[in-house]
Amino acid sequence: MREIVLDTETTGLDPFTGDRIVEIGCIELVNHVATGANFHVYVNPGRSMPEEAFAVHGISDEFLRDKPPFAEVGAGFLEFVGESPLVIHNAAFDMKFLNAELEWMQLAPLPLTRAVDTLDIARRLYPGAQNSLDALCRRFGIDNSARTLHGALLDAEILAEVYLELIGGRQPGFALSASRGRGTGVGIDWRPMPRPTPLPPRITEAERIAHAALVETLGEKSLW
């Protein structure tokens, strides 16, 4: 199963009052394992970054000046995500911005039913608790020390770890890698090797003799 963990950074809160996407970060999971494939772009929003947005993201107008507009990266984004479910924290926010940008390109919006909202999952699992991405990292012991500023790709990487905890916890040794040839690691077709030394018997000699004697009393027509 392929899933895309996704995060966006924006100039503000509402695309219909002039705010735009400035960064998209996506991480590919296959069978709940990161493959190493990702999609990451900075986007020229066509407007100045508000002071409060710069304080959150650390992205300046000068940095974004030579970056492509969404219209030039939208097709590549859609190609990467394909038809896979989109794992997003507070999905309504990111989907609102992505669909606004796609509609301005005269492309079909992404159905909201494709979104797997980790904020909704966390609220159902931990009602009344803090369920921000940072709070969930603290709850699960996930290192987010590099998250001094909001960044789409870093947040997507952290969210991938949080998502795996929310759906039941990471399982080391189970489907350790689905890299499809990217880098090294154990593939999804991994199987355990035979033990070099057989395990010792778990019954005593007296128990073995008693069992053999019992079998002798059962007769030839016994069913096993």
Rank of each mutant, 00 (worst) to 15 (best):
G12A: 08
G12S: 09
G12N: 06
G12D: 07
L13Y: 11
L13F: 15
L13S: 10
L13N: 08
D14M: 03
D14A: 12
D14V: 10
P15F: 09
P15D: 12
P15L: 11
P15T: 12
P15S: 12
P15Q: 10
F16S: 04
T17I: 14
T17G: 00
G18F: 09
R20N: 01
R20W: 01
R20Q: 07
I21V: 15
I21F: 02
I21Q: 01
I21P: 00
V22G: 00
V22K: 02
E23G: 01
E23M: 02
I24R: 03
I24V: 15
I24G: 06
G25M: 11
G25K: 09
G25I: 12
C26L: 11
C26F: 08
I27F: 00
I27C: 00
I27D: 00
I27M: 03
I27N: 00
E28W: 13
E28T: 08
E28S: 12
L29A: 04
L29S: 02
N31Q: 12
N31P: 01
N31W: 03
N31I: 00
H32A: 10
H32Q: 11
T35I: 10
T35C: 14
G36W: 13
G36Q: 11
G36L: 13
G36K: 12
A37W: 04
N38L: 09
N38V: 06
F39D: 05
H40W: 04
V41K: 10
V41R: 14
V41M: 03
V41Y: 02
Y42W: 09
Y42Q: 10
Y42R: 15
V43A: 01
V43T: 05
N44V: 12
N44Y: 01
P45K: 06
P45V: 13
P45G: 01
G46W: 03
G46A: 06
G46R: 06
G46L: 05
G46D: 01
R47E: 01
R47I: 04
S48G: 10
S48P: 00
S48Q: 11
S48M: 03
S48Y: 02
S48T: 13
M49D: 07
M49S: 09
P50N: 05
P50T: 12
P50D: 06
E51G: 15
E51I: 10
E51D: 15
E52N: 10
E52I: 14
E52H: 13
A53V: 12
A53M: 09
F54K: 13
F54C: 04
F54V: 14
A55Y: 08
A55S: 14
V56D: 07
V56Q: 04
V56M: 07
V56T: 15
H57I: 04
G58V: 06
I59C: 03
I59L: 15
S60W: 12
D61W: 04
D61M: 04
D61Y: 02
D61N: 15
D61K: 02
E62Y: 02
E62S: 11
E62L: 07
E62H: 05
F63V: 06
F63W: 06
F63C: 02
F63G: 06
